[in-house]
Structures are given as structure tokens and as C-alpha cells.
Design a binder for these strands. Structure first.
Lengths: 345, 345
DNA sequence: TGTTAGCACTCTATGTTGTTGAGTGCTAAC
DNA sequence: GTTAGCACTCAACAACATAGAGTGCTAACA
């Protein structure tokens, strides 16, 4: 059996209507749609075919049809149309980044909030992993006799602080010198490449400085491991209650909220498809148990063409893909532009 | 009518049992309790009295009795016993702060997580407001021609970063000098007192430095306003689903989660009782709509005897007050000790 | 006078049954 | 190939019956 033009159109209409109503679509309902020029009986025949092909199923005999995940997959791959966002919406998105956006992390958090608000789905976002960042410089500041504050600034102007506890006392002068060595080593390399390049620079240092530096390297490593625990933010958790498929099933809602509170799980979810500008995962395509009846759409943001982080939304499989994808695509581009402006001024 | 010994004991037992079971307690059930030496008929009479006095009510005729909020209030004020925490639990709490606790904010977040885990209620915590913090020093670092990174370190070793955009270019030398002036002004005063003390120091500066400094003061102010948006963290949102009174009522669960996602509302909740070491708010005592059928227990942490922040839990009014209060009281003391250790080493 | 057993009464929760209506598959006519 | 017609199915809803837990009241008892 083949998916001819008419079958496609019926399928598309069912998907569209079901996304709206969340109610199984019957042949009679469908025949009333002005786009449908054929009778309900004919539609029934076609529906039976579509069911056989795996695009539709009935929750029970004598109910209407519901799109399967295969249908949604077909829909997003072939039928969906990405639209241009309305001017007001575009302005709203841009304005979020215009005001007081000095901190990258802040921008990431705001993105989750914005996404959740304008899509009405639950949204999440992820700050870049340390390993993807290029160091601009570090500064060592003496806090106490044995305590050093390490301020790390990346090219992307992400600032991170770490307090390091030393085993030997240090002075400001020594810290400055060690800081300089670290700066030379770190210039334009990612933090992960640090170890290799640092050893050649040791000769110019006094014993005291050398031992301090060597002491700091494993601490730096530890920090990076800690740092690698990605920072993810979720917003609009309550949005899930707006969808009857979750609101009527506490167990499902609970699982959903549990999962979104689970940092590492979320982080993994957001890293999975970091190589693609946009990614759509439908139902069972998600490995996470709680998302197996959800769809997750994520977008990647980049620096110098290199993907470093993602954000996205999660909602029921009958998600408004057209709109969500349109928003994410616009937001992705806007965010990229915003970053390069931040870096290059 | 007076609350004699027997009435009190009956009331206490009802509260205890209802906290466990979440089911209305009937006279027969109660008479089976080994502590009760009287018959169900007598208990019925006493219950009728207690109901008349406003301590109990019936969800409907022919149901058992349920404690009113007045009963919980009496319970926490007079009947509850704060117990010593088990050694294992004490160790668990201490260990959370032992490992890698360099950042105050991290400690605050961990506290919410810990609280939620050991109490099985939803927990939240709040980082100190800037206005309560004493500046230790600031450091100005040149990021770009017109961009300055301000690193602010407080006595409590809280580190915050702000990127400031200038209207005139600055050099490292100037920044250092301005930084020094700021440091002298800020020494041991709270950030809010800055404005007054800064004007006398201006004379020693060159015109260029002076204008830079004057430019930075309103920016600092703005930052502090922004900063005053308190940072609150919630954890264990899903815990609420474990309680039938919420799990069976989606609308209530939704409201609850909405409120906990509402930063400013939460911040307010946590600031309300900052003057008291421990505070218990039961049901209608909460002003927040979503908490009107919850109880909120908060504890305050201090620096140098001055309260600067709080954490707490929120759950159904039939909360296990004995345990929660015991935990919060222990945690409060432990946290205070931890802070003073951090500051004074 | 306080305590208790007994009893009629109340009301929710649960289960049963019947009805309605939306939707289907199949058949036969167009 | 398309469509009208019809018998059939099944969830959703309402109406009704039943069981059980709990109460208040009364009268007897210590």
C-alpha cells in the first residue's frame, strides 16, 4: 500500500486537529472539515489503510483515530511548515536580551523562562560545558593565608569563581607570577588542554612558585570535573498540567517533574543532540523513561561555528511542532548573534 | 468548657494518628490505641466537646474527626517534642558541608537538596541579600576597552561577578587606583552604606579617576538593586505528590508548583520571619494562596548573630512537625557553625 | 456524676445496571 | 472508486442499590 496524496492530506489534517483537541478524530468530524471534499465513508476506508500502515490507531473500538508516533515523525519530516514569527513576538524575544544582559548564565536562564512563556510548554536550557570554553584569562586573588580565589574569564565572557585551599601559604606577589604563567598557558586553549602545555613553562619559575603552581594543577582539574556537572535550568514546570494527558494522570505528571528536577538526566538530554542545529525527539525516541510519552525539541547555540550549548522545550507528543520549531529556530539565530556581539565588543 | 488533661491527650493522639494516616480518625479506631483506656463512647463525647471548641471537625457526618488548624497550632505550641536526631542522620548532615564547600551559594543549594531528601517534603533555601553582607574587598579587572569585571568578595566569602560597561575607556592602572579607593570605602561596611562614605575620599584622585569612580557608583547601585532580587532555590517539588491531599487534586498540585517556581513570592515567604530562629506557619496563617492548605517551617541562619538568610520546608498541614522542627533546628545550628568556620579561617 | 453498651441514623464509597451517542466495518447501490 | 445505510461496539454517564464506618442519643451501670 502506498501513501498517496489524499492519504497524506487526511493524515495531516488528523495530526493538526488532534494537536488542537487532544480528542480522537472520527471520520464524520473529519468530513466536516472544509478541506475534505470526500464523504465520511471514504475517509473511513482511508483511515483503515492508514491504521494498517501504522500511522493511526484507535484507543478502543468505536473511538476515533489518534496519530501514532510514526505519524508525528512523518509530519515533522515532511508536512510541517516553519513560519516566520510575528513582528511583536520577534520584538519580545529580542528585548529579553537587550536589557542588562551582561552575564552569559543569566542569558541562559532567561532563555528558558522566555521559551516557556511564549510556547506554553515546559522549557529548559543548558550553560556551556567548561571543556568547550576558551580561556581568556585567569586572575588569582589572595583571600586568606591559605585561600586563593581563582577568577576565570572565558572568551565568551563567562565568569566563574573558585576558592582554592592551599597546603602552603602564598603571597600576592607569588600569586601574580603564577597567575601570569597560567595565563600564558591558557591563552586561547580550552581548559582541557591545559595540562599538556603547562610543563614547558616551569623553568622560569623559582622553586616556591613552581611548587605552588604544581599544587594548583590538580585542583584546577578537580574544579573542571566539578564544573562539568552541567548547569541546566528548567522553567514552566507547571505548564505540563495544562495538557489533559498529564493533568488526568498524576503518576505521569509526577514522573515528569521528577525528571526535570534531575540535573544530570536533563544535562544528558540536552547534550545528546548538540551537533545538530535543531533536533526533534518524539515519544519512544527519548531514552528517558519519563519522556517516552513526550516530545522534546532542542536547539543548539554556537560560538565561532562550534556548538557549545542547547535549549529546548518538552511537551506532549501532540506538540505544536510548527510553532515550536519556528520559535526555536528564530531564538537560536538570535542567540548566536547575541553571543558574537558580546564576544566581539 | 476547659481543655483538661484527657482532652489534651485525645487531641494529641488524633493529631499524631492523622499525620500518619491522612484519614479521619473515628472514636472506635482511637479506643483501640493502647494509650487510650476509655471506651469509644466516652471518646465520642470528648470529641464532640473538642469539635465545639474548634479543635476538630468532620469532613461530613458519619466520618471520623480531623484536626483543625487551631489543633495543629496547639500541637506545635504545647504538645510537640523536639527530639535529638539520630547519629547517622547527624553525620549525613555534617558530611554534606564537609566536602568541597567553598562557595556559599553552593552550600545554600545543597541545603535545600539535603532538607528535601531527609524530610521528604519540598524544601527551599535563600541566599543572603546583598544588603546584609559586609564587603571584604572588590577587584576591578579590565575585560575590554569599555568593559570592566567587578569581583566582589564579602566577609562571608560570597563571591559575585558583575560586568560593567563604561562610557569612557579605562586602563588597568586607573582601575587599580579606583579599586583601591572603593576598597577603603567599603571596608567593613555593608554595600548599602557605600554612598555616604565615598564622597570624602574623592580629593586624592585625578580628574580622570574621579570621573570613572563617579560613573561607577550608580552602576554599583543598580547592581545591588538587581542583586536584591533574592536568590531562592527549591528542591523536591515532586515530593508533594506523595501526599494524597495533593496527589488527588491536580488543581492544588498545580498551584503549589506554580508558587514554588515563582521566585519573588518564595523570596518573600523566606524573608517574612527572618527575625526568628524557627518559625511555623500553619494553613491559613500563610498569606500565599497556594500555601493556605500547607504548613511552612523555616529556620534562619546568622552571621555574627545577625540573621541573613533562611531555609525551610513546605508540606501538608498534617506535617510531621516533631521531626521537621528537630531537623531544622539541628541544621540551623550546624549551618551557623559552618559559616563562622568559613569566615574565620 | 462520669462511663459505657446498644441502637437507629447518616453519609460516602463502591459496585451494578441501563442508556446514550460517537464511531466503526461491511455491504450494496450508484 | 465513492457513498449511503445499517448493525455492531464500547466508553462515558447517570441512576440506583449496598456495605461499612462513624455518629449522637438514650438508658443502664459503677
Amino acid at each position: 500500500m502506498t501513501l498517496d496524496e489524499r492519504k497524506l492530506q487526511i493524515l495531516e489534517t488528523i495530526v493538526r486537529e488532534y494537536i488542537q483537541s487532544a480528542e480522537p478524530i472520527g471520520s464524520r468530524t473529519l468530513s466536516k472539515n472544509p478541506k475534505m471534499k470526500i464523504s465520511s465513508a471514504t475517509i473511513r476506508n482511508e483511515m483503515a489503510d492508514l491504521e494498517e500502515m501504522g500511522y493511526l490507531y484507535q484507543p478502543h473500538t468505536s473511538a476515533g483515530r489518534v496519530p501514532s508516533e510514526k505519524a508525528y515523525r512523518l509530519y515533522v519530516d515532511q508536512l510541517m511548515t516553519i513560519m516566520e514569527l510575528g513582528g511583536i513576538l520577534q520584538e519580545e524575544i529580542k528585548s529579553v536580551y537587550n536589557t542588562y544582559m551582561d552575564e552569559f548564565t543569566e542569558a541562559i536562564q532567561r532563555t528558558a523562562r522566555l521559551l516557556s512563556r511564549i510556547t506554553s510548554y515546559t522549557a529548559f536550557s543548558m550553560a556551556p560545558q567548561a571543556k568547550h570554553l576558551n580561556c581568556k584569562f585567569i586572575k588569582l586573588i589572595l583571600l586568606g593565608e591559605m585561600k586563593v580565589l581563582l577568577v576565570l574569564v572565558t572568551k565568551e565572557r563567562i565568569v566563574r569563581n573558585y576558592v582554592i585551599t592551599l597546603t602552603q601559604p602564598a603571597s600576592e606577589a607569588i600569586l601574580d607570577k603564577v597567575g601570569n604563567v597560567l595565563n600564558i598557558c591558557l591563552k586561547d586553549i580550552t581548559l582541557y588542554e591545559l595540562n599538556d602545555s603547562i610543563m614547558d613553562k616551569l623553568d622560569a619559575l623559582t622553586e616556591e612558585e613552581k611548587s605552588l603552581l604544581l599544587e594548583m594543577i590538580p585542583l584546577l582539574k578537580e574544579i573542571l570535573i566539578e564544573e562539568d556537572r552541567q548547569r541546566v535550568y528548567a522553567d514552566g514546570l507547571d505548564k505540563i498540567f495544562n495538557f489533559p494527558e498529564f493533568a488526568d494522570d498524576i503518576e505521569r505528571a509526577k514522573k515528569f517533574i521528577e525528571t526535570l528536577n534531575h540535573q544530570t538526566l536533563l544535562a544528558h538530554k540536552l547534550t545528546e543532540n548538540i551537533q545538530r542545529d535543531l533536533s526533534i525527539q518524539i515519544g519512544e525516541e527519548n531514552v528517558e523513561e519519563a519522556f517516552k510519552d513526550c516530545s522534546v525539541v532542542t536547539a543548539t547555540y554556537k560560538i565561532d561555528g562550534k556548538p557549545i550549548g542547547t535549549f529546548g522545550v518538552v511537551g506532549p507528543t501532540r506538540m505544536n511542532y510548527d510553532y515550536v520549531v519556528s520559535v526555536l529556530d528564530f531564538l537560536r539565530k538570535e542567540f548566536n548573534a547575541q553571543i558574537s556581539r558580546m564576544i566581539n565588543d
